[in-house]
Amino acid sequence: HNLTITQGKLFFHYNPKLCLSEIHKMEEVSGTKGRQERNDIALKTNGDQASCENELLKFSYIRTSFDKILLRWEPYWPPDFRDLLGFMLFYKEAPYQNVTEFDGQDACGSNSWTVVDIDPPLRSNDPKSQNHPGWLMRGLKPWTQYAIFVKTLVTFSDERRTYGAKSDIIYVQTDATNPSVPLDPISVSNSSSQIILKWKPPSDPNGNITHYLVFWERQAEDSELFELDYCLKGLKLPSRTWSPPFESEDSQKHNQSEYEDSAGECCSCPKTDSQILKELEESSFRKTFEDYLHNVVFVPRKTSSGTGAEDPRPSRKRRSLGDVGNVTVAVPTVAAFPNTSSTSVPTSPEEHRPFEKVVNKESLVISGLRHFTGYRIELQACNQDTPEERCSVAAYVSARTMPEAKADDIVGPVTHEIFENNVVHLMWQEPKEPNGLIVLYEVSYRRYGDEELHLCVSRKHFALERGCRLRGLSPGNYSVRIRATSLAGNGSWTEPTYFYVTDYLDVPSNIA
């Protein structure tokens, strides 16, 4: 807008934040220059609390790290170098490059900038070799853009010569660093050979998330399962459950009422301010606690030095998902009996873990797994792929695949051998790939016309006998059925096997 004052003059007093240069501009645009008398524009009460600059400061050096910015700028000295009290560095987070010096300023003089007072450097006698002032900004957020400017702080001049310097606002972004852990990993099994893994992005990506790394490792069953005799009275049979499938998407929606109208769909109840505040506090606490764990609990591995020492970490090797089922080394339970199943799973520490690289999504279907087997899954978020990966501390989750139908069934015939004193040795093959492992066998036998009897055969007993022995049988026709019990439950009964026990007292003698 054009402003013209045809008559009258300007009068400025007691404006401590208004620089004289701005008042002189007002004289020019209003056409009143030359009308004012000496005392109409006070030299001592206008701009006496402001830094009124008329020179431009330029930054000469900028260096960044993930949490620091090192700045240096060209030296500046007023005509009387004693008038320079120091520099004021202003900075704040700036997602967009549209910041002005006066953003967030209120009537009390406060604003949204963080201000650092910096002492002037030592003055050199040689004007050509003056030290460049600077400042190291610490405690910054990774991968965050900051708006920065600097200006001088000078003393009051009796001659009211307006001098000083100020830089333009520059924008500097800190470097990326390792992201925080992925949030809320959930693993479920939808079949006997697959596990579905879902997660949420890290709360602090500290860069642009480029991919996720998912490692999985087959877990050995508890050692007590191999040692305890679950045929003993009072000892509860062990059981394991597989990871249940995901709930429906509708039930997972946030901010939804727990109660549904019987007449149909209901609208979600909005969260109160107290609920939102509580969630923010919980989120802040979780982030602080995660940072504490990362800094205190997890110790970084030592990389190899120039002395030739090897990095103890196993090298990563990509495998196809079809090879995942046989990740671990199978060892027989008892070496003397080769027909026992290889369900003991000690994992070799030198073995390469299978892994998958996930790009542009937060889910993965891990296939080719062994049925009813526990897996430990390790999830890392990465925001750099080359020249070397920059990934987060791992988040861990466990899951067990679903049982395989008929995996616990005894394959092959049940054979028998009759000894003296009416002892019958029953023999059968253990299931080759049971659900988890076989903890015991149930032997059901009966003599024709009598009630059915049951015998429990422990895992250890089966390994020693290759089956079991029935003792003290009365003469007669017998039928026997056997079924295995694994961590997933009972298998199917075998087809009945028949044998006849004679009275050993009636056996004919070869003595003449």
Rank of each mutant, 00 (worst) to 15 (best):
D204A: 09
D204Q: 09
P205W: 04
N206K: 05
G207M: 09
N208P: 14
N208E: 12
N208T: 06
I209M: 13
T210G: 10
T210S: 03
H211R: 06
Y212A: 10
V214D: 00
F215I: 08
F215V: 13
F215S: 10
W216T: 15
E217V: 09
E217Y: 15
E217K: 05
R218D: 04
Q219D: 09
E221W: 02
E221A: 01
S223C: 13
L225I: 08
L225G: 08
E227M: 10
E227N: 10
L228I: 12
L228P: 08
L228W: 10
L228D: 15
K233Y: 07
K233E: 12
G234T: 05
G234E: 14
L235I: 11
L235N: 11
L235K: 07
K236A: 15
K236I: 08
K236V: 07
K236M: 14
L237D: 05
L237I: 05
L237W: 13
P238N: 11
S239N: 03
S239G: 13
R240I: 10
R240L: 08
R240C: 08
W242T: 13
W242A: 09
W242Q: 06
W242F: 02
S243W: 06
S243D: 09
P244F: 12
P244V: 08
P245I: 13
F246R: 05
F246K: 08
F246V: 08
F246P: 08
E247F: 12
E247M: 08
E249V: 09
D250M: 08
D250P: 11
D250H: 09
S251T: 15
S251F: 08
Q252Y: 03
Q252W: 09
H254M: 08
Q256A: 15
Q256S: 06
S257F: 13
E258V: 05
Y259A: 05
Y259W: 14
D261N: 15
S262Y: 12
S262Q: 03
A263W: 03
A263K: 03
G264C: 02
G264V: 08
E265N: 14
E265T: 13
C266Q: 10
C266K: 08
C266S: 14
S268G: 07
S268E: 14
C269L: 09
C269T: 14
C269I: 04
P270I: 06
K271C: 02
T272D: 04
T272N: 13
D273V: 07
S274N: 10
Q275E: 14
Q275M: 11
I276P: 10
I276D: 03
I276M: 09
E279D: 12
E279F: 03
E281P: 03
E282I: 11
S284N: 14
S284V: 07
F285Y: 12
R286I: 04
R286W: 09
R286K: 11
K287C: 06
T288A: 13
F289A: 05
E290A: 11
E290K: 12
E290G: 15
E290W: 04
D291K: 03
D291C: 05
D291F: 06
D291W: 13
L293P: 02
V296G: 07
V296M: 13
V296W: 13
V296S: 09
V297G: 13
V299L: 03
V299S: 12
R301L: 09
T303K: 06
S304Q: 05
S304E: 06
S304Y: 08
S304I: 04
G306V: 09
G306S: 07
G306I: 10
G308L: 14
A309S: 15
D311F: 10
D311C: 03
R313G: 03
R313N: 10
S315C: 10
S315A: 14
R316W: 13
K317T: 07
R318T: 09
R319Y: 06
R319N: 03
R319E: 13
S320W: 06
S320V: 08
L321H: 07
G322H: 08
G322I: 10
V324E: 03
G325S: 10
G325L: 13
N326L: 13
N326G: 05
V327T: 08
T328V: 08
V329K: 08
V329S: 13
V329D: 04
V331F: 12
V331P: 14
V331M: 13
A335F: 03
A335T: 13
A336H: 15
A336R: 15
A336I: 08
F337W: 10
N339A: 10
N339M: 06
N339H: 08
T340Y: 09
S342C: 02
T343R: 09
T343F: 13
S344H: 13
S344P: 11
V345D: 08
V345H: 06
P346A: 05
T347M: 14
T347Y: 12
S348E: 13
E350S: 14
E351L: 15
H352Q: 06
H352L: 13
R353F: 02
R353G: 14
R353N: 09
P354C: 14
P354K: 09
P354N: 07
P354A: 05
P354H: 12
F355Y: 08
E356D: 05
K357V: 15
V358Q: 14
N360P: 09
N360V: 10
N360M: 09
N360D: 03
K361I: 06
K361N: 10
K361F: 13
K361Q: 09
S363V: 05
S363P: 09
I366A: 03
S367Y: 05
S367P: 11
S367W: 09
S367G: 10
G368H: 04
L369P: 01
R370V: 15
R370A: 13
H371L: 06
F372T: 03
T373G: 12
T373L: 10
G374P: 10
Y375F: 14
Y375G: 00
R376D: 15
I377W: 12
E378S: 14
L379T: 03
Q380S: 10
Q380R: 04
A381P: 00
N383H: 05
N383Y: 02
T386N: 13
P387A: 11
E388Q: 10
E388I: 15
E389A: 10
R390N: 09
R390P: 12
R390Q: 11
C391R: 03
C391S: 03
V393W: 14
A394E: 05
A394Y: 06
A395F: 12
Y396P: 14
Y396C: 07
V397T: 03
V397K: 15
V397P: 14
S398E: 04
S398P: 07
A399S: 14
A399L: 10
A399C: 09
A399P: 07
A399Q: 12
R400E: 12
R400P: 02
R400A: 05
T401K: 00
P403S: 07
P403F: 07
E404R: 11
E404Y: 14
A405T: 13
K406E: 09
D409A: 05
P413H: 13
P413K: 09
V414W: 02
E417S: 08
E417R: 09
E417N: 06
E420K: 09
N421P: 12
N421I: 15
N421K: 13
N421A: 12
N422F: 10
V423H: 00
H425L: 07
M427H: 15
M427K: 08
Q429F: 15
E430R: 05
P431Q: 15
P431A: 04
K432R: 10
E433W: 11
P434A: 04
N435H: 03
N435F: 00
N435S: 04
G436N: 02
L437P: 04
I438F: 02
V439G: 09
L440C: 10
L440K: 12
Y441L: 00
Y441K: 00
E442Y: 04
V443L: 07
S444P: 00
S444L: 05
S444N: 00
Y445W: 07
Y445T: 06
R446L: 11
G449K: 07
D450K: 09
E452H: 15
E452S: 08
H454M: 15
L455G: 10
V457W: 10
R459T: 04
R459S: 14
K460A: 09
F462V: 10
F462Y: 09
F462M: 11
A463H: 09
A463M: 10
E465H: 11
E465S: 14
R466D: 09
C468E: 01
C468S: 05
R471K: 05
G472P: 05
G472T: 03
G472Q: 06
L473M: 04
L473H: 01
P475H: 12
P475S: 06
P475F: 05
G476R: 00
Y478A: 00
Y478G: 00
S479I: 05
R481W: 04
I482D: 01
R483G: 01
A484N: 00
S486M: 13
S486L: 01
S486T: 11
L487Y: 10
L487P: 09
G489Y: 12
G489L: 05
N490G: 15
S492G: 14
S492F: 03
W493L: 04
W493C: 01
T494G: 00
T494V: 01
T494N: 13
E495K: 11
E495R: 06
T497A: 03
Y498T: 08
Y498V: 07
F499Y: 02
Y500A: 09
D503F: 09
D503N: 08
Y504W: 15
Y504S: 04
Y504M: 03
L505W: 06
L505P: 08
D506E: 05
V507N: 04
V507Y: 03
S509T: 10
N510P: 08
